[in-house]
Design a protein around this nucleic acid. Structure first.
Length: 209
DNA sequence: TACCAGGTCCTCG
DNA sequence: CGAGGACATGGT
């Protein structure tokens, strides 16, 4: 298993990543993961942290509050993570979905089937496959492998060229043990590797040889 | 100072 | 479909 061998190398080099990073626990912690997953779309995590702090101060830590807060106020909170009008709208839509269908309990993600929930999330405006899968894996604790831009770059360097998002996902899922813990850690390690790739390309490539 | 960051949606051919 | 553009801020 080549993918597992690479995983072990990355783990040995970078150590445990402890994803998903968050300040809150319990119900609010689950919601915070979903919010972060939306905010980090094509955006540096540092900017996301600024927004999470704003939202915490504004007590926007549950779906009910986000669904009800004035759009202009939410936009102001979200500004630092970029695309702030779109992202405020995405947070509203996701929050309303949780409120209307699951009584505002983001922990609904922990229950039910993976496939059904994935379809629901993908049906929401603003949630594409990576965001939906991040939510399912890290908030819903469901065994689904998250594919991001770095994962595709890793594949490129392994000589694996696929087209569709799901083809990449199934490639990882079918070549690794089905484990939430492994999927969480591996995705986080790939991001760490991706960052190294931009800083020191030779070192990053050597690491996966 | 350009360029990039843990994507997604929309439009047009 | 698929390519191309829009969305936006903060760090280096």
């Amino acid at each position: 298993m080549r993918l597992f061998r690479i995983y072990k190398k990355l783990y040995k080099f970078f150590g445990p990543q402890r994803w998903w990073p968050r300040m809150l626990r319990g119900e609010e912690g689950i919601f915070e993961i979903c919010v972060g997953a939306i905010l980090t779309q094509n955006t540096n995590w540092n900017n996301v942290v600024l927004v999470l702090r704003n939202m915490h101060e504004a007590e926007l830590t549950c779906p009910e509050r986000v669904a009800q807060v004035r759009a202009a106020k939410l936009q102001a909170c979200v500004r630092a993570s970029g695309y702030y009008r779109q992202k405020a709208k995405k947070l509203k839509i996701f929050s309303k979905y949780i409120c209307d269908n699951y009584s505002g309990k983001t922990s609904c993600l922990l229950k039910g089937g993976l496939v059904g929930k994935r379809e629901e999330l993908l049906g929401l405006w603003g949630l594409g496959p990576e965001t939906a899968d991040s939510i399912l894996l890290y908030a819903g604790v469901k065994p689904i492998f998250v594919i991001d831009a770095y994962t595709k770059r890793l594949c490129q360097n392994l000589g694996v060229e696929l087209v569709d998002y799901d083809d990449y996902r199934l490639y990882f899922e079918s070549n690794l043990p089905k484990s939430v813990k492994l999927y969480k850690e591996y995705h986080a390690l790939i991001v760490a590797w991706g960052k190294l790739l931009t800083k020191d390309k030779d070192k990053a490539l050597l690491l996966i040889k």
